[in-house]
Design a protein around this nucleic acid. Structure first.
Length: 571
RNA sequence: GCACACGUGGCCUAGACUGGAUAUGGCAGCAGCCUCCUAAGCUGCAGGUCGGGGGUUCGAAUCCCUCCGUGUGCGCCA
């Protein structure tokens, strides 16, 4: 349940009654003032026109018409606002009790019937995943977690691109390049070991027309359905994919299902898309290649010619993506895609094509801007790149340094475990804390920030709460929380009460960056409480404060888990 | 060139969808706080033309127009 809801409802009905008795039965807003001056406020400015009075006068008059309220301790008029303070004792009781009672499900919404298919990551299996692309799985996995917390039935899916020139080229390289011709890589992960082959193959293709011819030949055989070639390419993609999946699992990203792009060629569904699109009134042909004329469909430039076949009749990526989406629509009520901003045109073409195919559905897309390095855009081929694996490794090392600096009492194994949780969490947190559409320049010192607005800051607050609870042992959980009325306690309780509404906002509106912001605020409120309010030496307040610490621990743990981070008991 | 997105103290960022009170935090800087529940913490100081200009409005970081900057796209690539 949402502990804030009853307060909001009471303000709503009271204000409604007051305005009605003044002759203004109109809708109004209830806001949470950013200044912190009140807990809830109703701006009276919009009513000025209807009532033909100054907002300040309306607020004053409404105040005198307000009915008696039970959950609000104070109401007053100020600068055109009708302000309300919640009864902190009531809030303390209802919030702490709700959190303790609901425990790990506090913040979760009711189950919803909609089935959601969330496609994310889907990076080409031609190299290890780098931090530029890492935004995708982190956003996708976090959104999946937020939506599940909202009660949706979410399945995550990765479309494996095992069709096309790049993978074919890689497969060619593995077959034709002798390992002694490329630089050795010390990594034991397949995706890293294949990089030199990919780079070399690219160079060879550019330099030698014979190589280019061989690759082109392989591609033709692939598209003609040559089982041997398809098998070779798919095995290569699979090898890369294993490495990518390993990297993802290191940052706690799990993919429920994998779909192979070549399947849409094999099962004929891509061909059916071509046949259907060919029947469209806007279908045109240019030297044998077919396209949809999307003039006037909100697309500009050459993109208005949406080619869906080559001159030789073979399909293109977006054509297969249409087949994939038709398939998705059969399996889920909502299809959500996490995509790089470079996909916008393709998705606009896809949405239009789906419309011409008579579908009134389109995927909901979330676009993220690329992460670049201070020296420019990342490129595996050019070697201007920071791999996710390197970032994870660096973050873990840095975390281990920090742990061993402050803990001498732990076993090596325990320290490594803590360092893993901290380092990996920091990587995820630093990416989700920024809105997807903002451009991001990767800087080591920011990615490895372990204080302030970071995962370790939040995890540390959780560990501190655990530490108090560990030392306290058993306590009376039925202690009356309404005695928690000092500023630090109240501020903390107000934060705890917000979790359900933050989860709804994050999951429902895909605004996942609000969750790290919230975590930071809870942790910050708890750290202040921790500094100034004694718990174990809290005398007759001890049990009530322990209940508050327990409630904080639960809220932090639930929020951390929803972010895909661990909630360490010590660090 | 055309289209889409983004621009908030030295750096990163919230607030923008749904206009409303004193613009949120963090990093870096400076000054403090460990006989007391883990100092990955806490407190204070300093730092702002919300990219520029115009408009709408009682009121604009928020909406509209325009210009500038950055990113992305404009392949019979994926």
């Amino acid at each position: 349940m949402d502990p804030l809801r009853p307060f909001r409802s009471e303000v709503e009905s009271a204000a409604k009654e007051a305005f009605r008795s003044m002759g203004a039965d109109v809708p109004f807003e209830i806001e949470v003032p950013s200044t912190g001056i009140a807990d809830l406020a109703v701006p009276c400015f919009p009513l000025a026109k209807t009532l033909r009075k100054a907002p300040a006068a309306i607020a004053e008059e409404a105040l005198s018409h307000l009915p008696a309220m039970t959950l609000i301790s104070r109401a007053w008029a100020e600068k055109g606002y009708l302000n309300f303070k919640v009864d902190t004792s009531v809030l303390a009781s209802s919030t702490v009790r709700a959190v303790l009672e609901e425990a790990s499900s506090y913040g979760r919404g009711e189950d919803r019937p909609e089935k959601v298919l969330l496609e994310h990551t889907s990076v080409n299996p031609t190299g290890p995943i780098h931090v530029g692309r890492a935004r995708n799985p982190i956003i996708g996995d976090t959104l999946a977690r937020c939506m599940r917390a909202c009660g949706y039935d979410v399945t995550t899916e990765y479309l494996v691109n095992d069709v096309g020139k790049q993978v074919v080229l890689l497969a060619w390289g593995l077959e034709n390049i002798d390992p002694s011709e490329v630089d050795a890589v010390e990594s034991d992960k397949a995706d890293h070991r294949l990089v030199p082959f990919y780079r070399k193959a690219n160079q060879m293709m550019e330099a030698d027309p014979e190589v280019a011819r061989q690759v082109a030949d392989m591609l033709v055989r692939f598209e003609a359905g040559d089982a041997e070639v398809i098998d070779t390419v798919r095995k290569t993609a699979s090898l890369m994919l294993d490495g990518i999946v390993q990297s993802l699992s290191a940052i706690n990203v799990h993919i429920d299902q994998f779909t192979w792009e070549s399947d849409f060629i094999k099962d004929g569904s891509a061909r059916r898309v071509v046949d259907e699109l060919t029947k469209c009134a806007v279908c045109r042909e240019d030297k044998g290649a077919r396209y949809l004329d999307l003039e006037g469909c909100g697309i500009h430039g050459r993109g208005t010619k949406f080619f869906f076949t080559r001159a030789d009749g073979t399909t293109l990526y977006t054509t297969r993506d249409i087949a994939y989406h038709l398939n998705k629509f059969c399996r889920a009520d909502r299809a959500i895609n996490i995509l790089g901003e470079d996909q916008k045109l393709g998705q606009a073409q896809l949405a239009n094509a789906l419309r011409f195919l008579g579908k009134d559905r389109a995927p909901e897309c979330i676009y993220y801007s690329f992460v670049s390095l201070p020296e420019g855009r990342m490129s595996t081929r050019k070697g201007v790149v920071v791999y996710l694996d390197d970032l994870i490794e660096e973050a873990e090392e840095r975390a281990l340094e920090e742990v061993s600096k402050r803990r001498t009492d732990l076993s090596e194994e325990k320290m490594l475990e803590i360092a893993r949780n901290i380092g990996r969490g920091a990587v995820r947190y630093n990416i989700v804390r920024v809105q997807p559409e903002k451009q991001l320049i990767f800087k080591w010192e920011e990615a490895l920030n372990f204080e302030g607005n970071s995962a370790p800051f939040v995890q540390y607050a959780h560990a501190r709460a655990c530490s108090i609870l560990r030392k306290a042992g058993d306590f009376d959980r039925s202690a009356d929380p309404s005695v928690l009325t000092n500023d630090y306690e109240v501020r903390l309780i107000k934060e705890l009460a917000r979790l359900p509404s933050v989860i709804v906002e994050a999951g429902e509106k895909a605004r996942i960056h609000l969750l790290p912001v919230y975590c930071q605020e809870v942790a910050s409120a708890f750290n202040q409480f921790y500094t100034y309010v004694p718990v174990l030496k809290g005398e007759d307040m001890k049990d009530a404060r322990l209940a508050l610490v327990e409630a904080t621990r639960i809220v932090l743990a639930n929020a951390l888990i929803t972010l895909g981070l661990s909630a360490p008991e010590e660090m």
